[in-house]
Every structure is written in C-alpha cells, then in structure tokens.
Design a protein around this nucleic acid. Structure first.
Length: 249
DNA sequence: AGCATTGTTTCACA
DNA sequence: TTGTGAAACAATGC
C-alpha cells in the first residue's frame, strides 16, 4: 500500500526501535537485498544500533551507531514495516533485524519489490513532495511535454507521489491528468501545489492514501463523487488513471 | 486463464 | 544530450 503517507507511517514505526542492539540480520533474500550478497548487510550492521530514521518521498533510510553505514529501505508495491510481530508464516518477511531482548523489525512484502540496501544512493531523487516549495514545484513539475500525471509520478521531479495520490490530487484540484505539464497556467499549478500539500497531510493524519475521496470511485459506481458524471479510465504515465472529464480540465 | 496491481529501474527512441 | 514512454521485475488477487 505504500505511497508517501504509508512510508511516513513506516518511518515512525522504525523510530520505535531506535537504540536497540542488533543481534542478527536476515538478509538472505538476494533479490530484495540486491546488489548485496547474503551476509553483507548483516556484517555491516550487526552489533550496532539504529540511531535515526529518515524519509524522502517513499525512500527510507536509517543511520546506525559507531559510524556504521546507513540502512536503506523501500516498501516497493506492497511492503510494510512490522515490529515485534511473529515471523510471517508464508515467508513474506523479506528482510529482518532481531534486537537484543527479543524484539524484531521486518520488511514484510508479498510482492517482493521492496528493497533493503546499505548506503543507499538518492542522488537522482527529487525533493520530498511534502516539503517542496511552491516555486520548486512549479520549476520541477510544471514543465516539459509530458502529461502532468506523469510528472507527478516522476520521483526525480518530486518524490513521494504514487498512482492513487496523483489521481486524488488531480481530482481535488480539478486538473486533467492529460494536461501537458509545461502548458498549465501558474495559478493552476499553484492550486495543484496547495492541494498536494493538503492531500499529503490528510492522508498521513488519516492513516493512508486510501482515505482519499476519489479512490473509491475506482471500484464503486464509476461516477464522479462531485458531479456524478461517469469517470474516464486510461493509461497515463504508465499507470491506470481515473478522472472526471467534466470536472477536470 | 488472463489481466491488473498503490513501485522502480533499464532500455529504446525521438 | 535530454526527455519521454514502454517493458521488465515478482507475486498475488480478482
């Protein structure tokens, strides 16, 4: 379920296990832990403690004690951080730490597209969508010939917006996902920016991107919750996109 | 059976 | 060179 709000939730989970000594590491999933060989991450962080949990967009990283390397984590398409729970019965724990005293932190991920890595590289990731300024937003997102939805999803432009959040923000701001990013007027870009901030704050407060207004329209009647017109569906920016052709221009 | 999926990276092409 | 878009990746659910 992870987009920015879920990643922030995960970060707060990690904060609860800071300061505990890591006594063992399960890094045996060589796909999730690529390009590291099994045992490599374990060797780098066993015996240390996690000291600070950070997030930029959907990317998480945790500092480690005694000059140890950062531990990078990504939830992928279906991951979550599980604390002190019993081991997933179906083998869905793709990476895990065990702490002195018996605690545990796992990356639980059915799809296996999540990631655990040492010293993550964020050089090609844009500023966090919840912290970007209006000017930065206009400069990075409001340009180019790609449709605005594709720009919102581009983690190199701004980081954190996923498919559901993009649809929600565009619907709230009454902007068509097909609008060419570079052709959107400054007032409309500003409105989109303000709505993005509001939707992010709202989703974090309510517990996830699922709490948006337009998301249920995907499965339910297929009509716009605001004007009742039939919603349109198409692939934009490589993802299934729903929007109201009457409200959104 | 077949298709879609809340994400990212890589590669082909203009 | 830069920007854009499609495919690949893994595994599950409808």
């Amino acid at each position: 379920m992870p987009e920015l709000p879920e990643a922030e939730r995960a970060r707060r989970q990690i904060e609860r296990v800071l300061g505990r000594e890591i006594v063992s590491v399960d890094d045996t999933d060589s796909y999730v832990c690529r390009p590291h060989a099994p045992g490599e991450i374990a060797a780098a962080i066993t015996g240390r403690t996690l000291t600070e949990a950070h997030r930029r967009g959907k990317f998480l990283w945790v500092e480690t004690s005694d000059g140890g390397p950062d531990l990078g984590l990504h939830l992928g398409m279906a991951g979550s951080i599980v604390l002190d729970g019993h081991r997933a019965p179906n083998g869905w724990d793709r990476f895990a730490l065990e702490f002195a005293g018996g605690g545990r932190m796992a990356l639980r991920d059915k799809r296996r597209l999540g990631r655990a890595v040492i010293e993550p590289d964020f050089s090609h990731i844009g500023p966090d969508a919840g912290e970007v300024t209006a000017k930065e937003f206009r400069d990075r997102v409001g340009r180019g010939s790609a449709p605005i939805k594709a720009k919102l999803l581009d983690q190199g432009a701004i980081a954190g917006v996923g498919n559901l959040l993009a649809d929600e923000v565009l619907w709230q701001a009454k902007v068509s996902p097909q609008a060419i990013a570079g052709e959107i007027s400054r007032p409309r870009l500003n409105r989109l920016y303000e709505q993005l901030q509001a939707s992010i704050a709202d989703a974090i407060a309510k517990g996830g991107v699922h709490t948006g207004v337009v998301i249920p329209a995907r499965k339910g009647s297929g009509t716009c919750p605001r004007c009742d017109a039939p919603m349109t569906r198409a692939t934009i920016g490589g993802r299934t996109t729903w929007w109201c052709p009457r409200c959104q221009r």
